[in-house]
Structure formats: structure tokens, C-alpha cells
Design a protein around this nucleic acid. Structure first.
Length: 801
RNA sequence: GCCGGAGUGGCGGAAUUGGCAGACGCAAGGGACUUAAAAUCCCUCGAAGCCUAGCUUUGUACGGGUUCAAGUCCCGUCUCCGGCACCA
């Protein structure tokens, strides 16, 4: 008979909710512990099974920490601004506030149904004016410190969403959300100077405990590289400045290449004989989508600036200047010195346009491909005979003394495009005055509320909904009271999520984003788990904001998250990403209804290694369901009169050790299998000492809190609740068996096992082998060359033939 | 192309630092209980072979190597997944 999970789960959820069992106090004698999961976007589809995978994991940590005597903060909220709600509004005319509200209610129901130990008193919502007031406030502080600025730059423009995208939202030249091609478009945008923090975002990774691959991703995304800027003279008063990481190859620089967007092209136009051709090429580059421009397989294209040349400062040779879209304006200086012998991209370009290739590093075969490795310098004047590293130093010094160049560090990381031409986001709290320029809306007027609108459809020309609200847009300058216009761009979804973990600390504070004493108490986040897909952008952005707030003296620590882990995705049973169109979506409601929340939770932890992607397979649920029923049935065998035998103690302590360890290492699948084995052992007994059931309840409680709480109440104690129990410590004297099984090998081959007492000597063991009927036949005593003994584990007898 | 990660029975997956490969679970087969079924419980379960109470050989993507001993370490190859991608 299966246990009545419906009643039990409802009962305990009500108790927890009514008693506020998981509300965190902002002080107290206990050590604090801040466990964080990524707050979800409340989509119309409801909870994805990937959410409870992460939530259950951190819920296990949170519940275990409470039992270990910590004051635990485990909060939840809603990252509720964003495109889907707005797209829904465009389609159905429903205000995003309304649809978002509905979705939040549904998510809440689902999360409660799964029994997560969230502190519901601290629930936050990024679309709540009381929340976004502070998002706007932080933006203004960034502005006041010169870290937010407007720039007229080519942005990524999604042709379908009609919205500017951050570089990070462009996937292979297409829009991350809708997959449409992305083109360049000039737009005056708010930018955040994240590049100013690039070094600190790399260096401070030393202080935190993130998975190595997460650190690597952060470092690679920032993309720091060391090189030099070098000036190539074009005419008496014109220089082209290039950035290169290989200044050592300067003697092999046989031409220069400018990006089609390079500002200098306007000036150079007058000096060249093929101006129209060049202009035409640049125009075309502009209208190419990123998809086309980034297609690596395509042949490189370019146009030479005819009648013009630059002087290679090392060789004094006059070399041609080209324009090509393989050089990007957004990196370095937007101009390069091309060294075809030692850069594959330059090599391909030189081959196509029959440009000279000059070897300056020996070691490769430049008739086949560019050689990018190390070697001795040749054809390089005073650098000849040096290796690459030494030559770099020499040439940079030489360029410096002749005032032709200097060493320079560059980053792949660009400043953060912070503007969106959208309705459903935080209004950027700025006003533009003809006289005073950009002026922040006075702090006491924050938040700038998102105005009500009738239609959510943006203009054909990419004009946003807010731009159409003339009454709202026209306002007075806070400084001079002259006529001024409000900013109509809104913030990206990354804004609200860049600081939400701070608001949890003091969610209802009306006068500050969070009180200092509370921040001092709770920060940093002790453990933050989330999806691998957020380990570059969200993590980088929120670290950037946090560092800024630290510089402002508003938070007590440099890094927001002490420890960061990531869970793998849950794929459909077909091994594909779950999606409506594939029809492979699993609805948590169905699972909870049929099997119960506890089975669902334990199953999610059992399904596979936590950090790897797993396929959903419904069959496995039956195994977990049986397991929990078996646990439920253990109480029938409780015998309060029998005491613990030594072997029971050993089993218990071993299990405590392994389960504790596996939880901390997030190897939940093996923690569960260990509890299963323990349960199997218990059920094999004719009578079970009560203590052993107690331990079973405690160890399983973080995974299956409802049913273990019920068992505890029914069979262990009515007075003290399970959640108030102490997480057990193990006795290291009791974790090993007294008797051990030794694997006996002859010449590395397993020939049998021997059960002996612990700590037996090699000599005695060897005699036992010789005396053993089954084993002795493999060993010819006279021919034994060597015996290898791993105490209490293995004996390997090496013998000649 | 570059940077990560993975490849183990019919399936999901175990195997702290090299030390009994296949824990735990699913599926399957057999048995008990039952009028029957479901549920539950017990047994078997990588492959091949043989003189079949057992024994032998073989086996962790593929090919080499190191070692008394390799799923684990080293070299090379293939496949899959994730991230980045003309970043000079």
C-alpha cells in the first residue's frame, strides 16, 4: 500500500507556511548562512523541471545547514520584467502586469507544492515599483560616477523584435530570443562602463570558490590580451594606430587593414583615387547582418585604398592600406598591421589579393599556411636571432624610445549596452535638457513609474511605445526647469537580477536599498547555485554592480558570491531540449499529483550527476516511489526494546559519513543510493532499533521533508519536530568495519577474496593464501618475486612462471 | 578552429588519492502469495566459452604506452554535448 502523500504533503506545507518555519532572523547567536538560487522568470508555461532540480539541491543544503545550527536565509523572488510578457501583450492586449501576476501566482503554487523551505516573507519582484526604485537609484549612482554614458554607436538590431541587443544576446549573428538575423544600426544608447572593472573582475576570482570552468568562462569572456599599439605614418599629419599582440612580427607587416567603420576613412577619402569604391564597400558592410559578417567559411573581401600608403616604422617600407570587414571596429583601434606569414587570417587575405608574405619567425612553412608558433626571428634587423618573447620586449622598447608605439592591454569585453527600446522594463530615470544635457530625475521623485499605455505595439521605425507618449515624455528639467524630455529607453532584464540578492536581505526597506547592518550580517552569499547558461553574463554583470556598490561604500565585500556551482540541464526523454513544439515537456504538476513532491524531489536528485545534463525518464520515478514506500514501512519493524549492536552502529556511522559528504559535494545521486542501501539493510532485519530509524529520517529529511516529518511525528517523537533535530556527526572510529575483505591477486589478476580482521600483516595474510585451497593453486611458493600489499584492501602476489 | 565536459551492461548511472568494474535504481526472466491480477517479497541478470555445485577467457569509445596493478595516469584517434568564435 502506498503512503498517503497527498494528505501528508499538504499537512506539512501548511504547518511550515503558517508557522513561518523558514523565516530567517536578521540576527541571533547562530552563524548565518545565505543560500541562493537564481530567481525564476515567471513564464506562462509554468515551472520547468529544470527549476526544481536546482531548487531541490539548494533546499537540501539549506535544510541541512539549519540542522547544523545555522541561521539560514533561503529566499525566493521573481525576475519578472522581460520580453515574453510584452510579446504576449502585443498579441493579446493583456497588460504585462496582469499576465505576470497570473504567472507569479502559478509559480508560487507550484513551488509551495514542492515543499521548498523558502522564506516567503522576503519574496521580491523586479517589476514592483518598491523594488525598481532601487534599480533606478543604482543606475543614477553609476551615472553620477561617470560609469553610465550615452553613445551613438552601431548596435545589434534584431530585425524581428525591433530591439537593440547586447553582444551577449546575439547568438551566431541571430537574436537569442527569436532567431532572426541581427543587423547593425546606429542608435544613441545608454552604456555601462563595465570595461573599467575588467581587471578586477578577473583578479578577484582568486578570492572566490567557483567551479574552475566557471572561472575560465569569466576570464575568457573578458578576454584580456597583452600587446602594443603602433603608429604607422600615412602623411605628415596622419597616423594610423594599430593594436597587435605580436609586435615582434612588425618586420613582416606588409599591409594595413582598416575596419569599414573606421572613422579615419572619412578623412582619407579625399586622398585616394578610388573613393566611391571604398565608400560602396563600407556601405555594404553596414547592411550585412552579423550572421553574414561572421561567417568564417566565407572568403574574405576587401578594397585597397589606392594612391595611399603607410610607412612601416621598422622597415621604413611603404605598404598598402586596405579596408576589410574581417577587422572589427569594436576591438583594439579598429585597424591592424597585417602579418600574413604569421597570422592565418592575414595569410588568407594576402593569398586572395596577392599581397607579399614575409617570414620573420622561423619554424613553419609559410608556403602552406601562416606560422603562429614560437621560433627565432629572421629578416628582422636588430631582432634577428631572438625568440618571440624577447623580441616583443625589444621592439616595444624600441618603439617607445622613438615615440612610435607603446605596450597596451586590450579586452574582448565591451561596455554594456544598457538601453532597450521596450515597454516592459525599468524606466531609465533620466531627463534630457537642451541646456543642461542629461540630468537624473531627483532621488525623491524615484521611482519613475512605468506609465500606463493603451497599445504595446511599437512603431514601424523602431520607435518604442514610450516614445509615443508625448505627455509623459515632455517634462521639465530638474535643474533649470526648462523644457526637457524623458528618456524613453528601458533597462535590460539583466538590471533587476544584478542586485536582487541584496534586496532579499532587507526586502521591505523604504528608505534604503538595504540597511547597512543587515548587509554586514548576511553578505556575502555563501552558496549560489544556478544554470550554466548564466555563468558568464548574469554572473559578470552582478559582480560588476556589486563591485561598484563596494566602491561606493554601500556593501561590505568585494565579491557577492563566495561559492558558485552550476547544475546541468534536464532534457526531454528524446535527449532534446524541452520545448512545446517538440512536445517533450514534463509538467511538474503531473509528477507531483501522481507520485508526490517527495518522490519528485528525490527523483530529481537521483536522476544523474548534478552538474551534467540528464535525460528525463519517467520509469525511474517508480523506483523512487517504491523506495519511499519502503522507508514508510520501516516503522512497522521498530522495536524500542532492542539496543544497537556494534555492527548497527558501524552501519549507521558509515552512512552518516557518506551521506553528509555527498551532499556537500553535490553528489546527490550517490547520497540517495547510500540511503537506499541503508534502508535495504534495515528492512532485512527482523526488528529495527528506533535509533536507526531516527537516523534514516534525519538523513532523508532534506530530500523528502514531508514524509520523514510525518514518520518522525508518528513513530519517533510527538514533542520535538524532525526539522529541529541536529544533523548527526559520525564517529570516525566507527566508520570502518572490524573485518575486511582482502582482494587477492596473482600477477595482477583477481583470484579470490579473504575475509580477515583489520590490520593483518602481509606475512600472515600470505600464509593464509598459501593455506587456502582455492587460492594456493595459483601460487608456486618458490617462484614468488614480490608481494604488494595495500593494507586492508588488496594483496598482489607477483610470481614467475 | 579554440576552450571546457563526456563516452562504462538492455537502460539511467556507481567506482574519494591507480587497488575486487558494474554500487543504487529501471527494464527483463524465474519463483512465492493470490481463484486471477495489481501491489509486495525472494532469486537471476555484461559477453563468450567449457569438463556447468563450478571454472576459464574477455570486457569501461578506438589504437598504443607506463605500472605488480589502469574506467582512473601518459601519447595519438574518433564521436557526442556545452561555451566562445575573423578579438589582431
Amino acid at each position: 500500500m502506498s503512503y498517503p502523500f497527498k494528505e501528508i504533503e499538504k499537512k506539512w506545507q501548511d504547518i511550515w507556511f503558517e508557522k513561518k518555519s523558514f523565516s530567517a532572523a536578521d540576527e541571533g547567536g547562530k552563524p548565518k548562512y545565505y543560500a541562493l538560487i537564481e530567481f525564476p522568470y515567471p513564464s506562462a508555461e509554468g515551472l520547468h523541471v529544470g527549476h526544481p532540480r536546482s531548487f531541490t539541491a539548494m533546499d537540501i543544503i539549506a535544510r541541512k545547514r539549519r540542522m547544523e545550527g545555522h541561521n539560514v536565509l533561503f529566499p525566493i523572488g521573481w525576475d519578472a520584467f522581460g520580453l515574453p510578457a510584452e510579446n504576449f501583450a502585443i498579441k493579446h492586449g493583456v497588460h504585462p502586469r496582469e499576465s505576470t501576476g497570473r504567472n507569479v501566482a502559478n509559480f508560487k503554487r507550484q513551488l509551495k507544492m514542492l515543499g521548498f523551505s523558502f522564506d516567503w516573507d522576503r519574496e521580491i519582484n523586479t517589476t514592483d515599483p518598491a523594488y525598481y526604485k532601487w534599480t533606478q537609484w543604482i543606475f543614477q549612482r553609476l551615472f553620477k560616477k561617470g560609469l553610465a554614458y550615452k553613445a551613438d554607436i552601431p548596435i545589434n538590431w534584431c530585425t524581428s523584435c525591433k530591439v537593440g541587443l547586447a553582444n551577449e544576446e546575439v547568438i551566431n549573428g541571430t537574436c537569442e530570443r527569436c532567431g532572426s538575423p541581427v543587423v547593425k544600426k546606429n542608435k544613441n544608447q545608454w552604456m555601462l562602463r563595465i570595461t573599467e572593472y575588467a581587471d578586477r573582475l578577473i583578479n578577484d576570482l582568486d578570492e572566490v570558490d567557483y567551479l574552475d570552468k566557471i572561472k575560465t568562462q569569466q576570464i575568457n569572456w573578458i578576454g584580456k590580451s597583452y600587446g602594443a599599439e603602433i603608429d604607422f605614418s600615412v602623411s605628415r599629419d596622419l597616423n594610423i594606430r594599430v593594436f597587435t599582440t605580436r609586435p615582434d612580427t612588425i618586420f613582416g607587416a606588409t599591409y594595413l587593414v582598416l575596419s569599414p567603420e573606421h572613422p579615419m576613412l572619412a578623412d582619407l577619402g579625399r586622398l585616394i583615387s578610388n573613393g566611391p569604391e571604398v565608400r560602396n564597400y563600407c556601405e555594404q558592410a553596414k547592411y550585412k547582418s552579423d550572421l553574414e559578417r561572421m561567417d568564417l567559411s566565407k572568403e574574405k573581401t576587401g578594397v585597397m585604398l589606392e594612391g595611399l600608403g603607410a610607412v612601416n616604422p621598422a622597415t621604413q617600407e611603404k605598404i598598402p592600406i586596405w579596408v576589410s570587414d574581417y577587422v572589427l571596429m569594436g576591438y583594439g583601434t579598429g585597424a591592424i598591421m597585417a602579418v600574413p606569414a604569421h597570422d592565418q587570417r592575414d595569410y588568407e587575405f594576402a593569398m586572395k589579393y596577392k599581397l607579399p608574405v614575409r617570414e620573420v619567425i622561423s619554424g613553419g612553412d609559410i608556403s602552406v599556411e601562416a606560422y603562429e608558433g614560437d621560433g627565432l626571428l629572421v629578416n628582422s634587423g636588430f631582432l634577428d636571432g631572438l625568440n618571440v618573447e624577447k623580441a616583443k620586449e625589444e621592439i616595444v622598447a624600441w618603439l617607445g624610445t622613438h615615440n612610435l608605439g607603446r605596450s597596451k592591454i586590450n579586452y574582448k569585453l565591451r561596455d554594456w549596452v544598457f538601453s532597450r527600446q521596450r515597454y516592459w522594463g525599468e524606466v531609465i530615470p533620466m531627463v534630457q535638457c537642451d541646456k543642461c544635457g542629461w540630468v537624473p530625475v531627483p532621488e525623491e521623485e524615484l521611482p519613475v513609474l512605468l506609465p500606463e499605455v493603451k497599445s504595446f505595439i511599437s512603431g514601424e521605425d523602431g520607435k518604442s511605445v514610450l516614445e509615443g507618449l508625448t505627455d509623459w515624455v515632455n517634462t521639465k528639467c530638474p535643474k533649470c526647469s526648462g523644457s526637457a524630455k524623458r528618456e524613453t529607453d528601458t533597462m535590460p532584464q539583466w538590471a533587476g537580477s544584478s542586485w536582487y540578492f541584496l534586496r532579499y536581505i532587507d526586502p521591505k526597506n523604504m528608505s534604503e536599498f538595504a540597511a547597512k547592518e543587515k548587509l554586514d550580517y548576511w553578505l556575502p552569499v555563501d552558496w549560489y547555485n544556478g544554470g550554466m547558461e548564466h555563468t558568464t553574463l548574469h554572473l559578470l554583470y552582478s559582480r560588476f554592480w556589486h563591485k561598484f556598490l563596494y566602491d561606493e561604500g554601500l556593501v561590505p565585500c568585494k565579491e557577492p558570491y563566495k561559492k558558485r556551482t552550476s547544475h546541468g540541464m534536464i532534457l526531454g526523454s528524446d535527449g532534446e531540449k524541452m520545448s512545446k513544439s517538440r512536445g517533450n515537456v514534463v509538467n511538474p504538476d503531473d509528477i507531483a499529483n501522481e507520485f508526490g513532491a517527495d518522490v519528485f524531489r528525490v527523483f530529481l536528485m537521483f536522476i544523474g550527476a548534478f552538474d551534467l545534463a540528464v535525460m528525463w525518464n519517467t520509469e525511474g520515478l517508480i523506483g523512487i516511489s517504491r523506495f519511499l514506500n519502503r522507508v514508510w514501512n520501516t516503522v512497522e519493524k521498530i522495536d524500542v526494546n532492542i539496543s544497537l549492536a556494534e555492527k548497527d552502529l558501524r552501519l549507521m556511522h558509515r552512512t552518516i559519513m557518506i551521506v553528509s559528504d555527498r551532499i556537500e559535494k553535490m553528489r546527490f545521486n550517490t547520497a540517495v543510493s547510500e540511503i537506499m542501501s541503508y534502508t535495504n539493510e534495515l528492512l532485512a532485519m527482523t526488528a529495527i532499533p528506533k535509533k536507526m530509524i531516527e537516523i534514516l529520517c534525519v538523513l532523508l529529511y532534506p530530500f523528502a521533508p514531508h514524509m520523514t516529518s510525518e514518520i518522525w511525528e508518528n513513530a519517533i517523537s510527538k514533542d520535538t519536530g524532525l526539522m529541529d533535530q541536529r544533523w548527526p556527526e559520525y564517529d570516525s572510529n566507527l566508520i570502518t568495519e572490524e573485518n575486511v575483505t582482502i582482494a587477492v591477486q596473482v600477477n595482477g589478476k583477481l583470484r579470490g577474496t579473504l575475509d580477515v580482521e583489520k590490520g593483518m600483516s602481509q606475512e600472515r595474510l600470505f600464509e593464509l593464501v598459501i593455506g587456502d585451497d582455492k587460492l594456493s593453486k595459483y601460487v608456486d611458493r618458490g617462484k614468488v618475486k614480490k608481494v604488494i600489499y595495500v593494507p586492508d584492501k588488496l594483496l598482489n602476489i607477483v610470481a614467475g612462471k
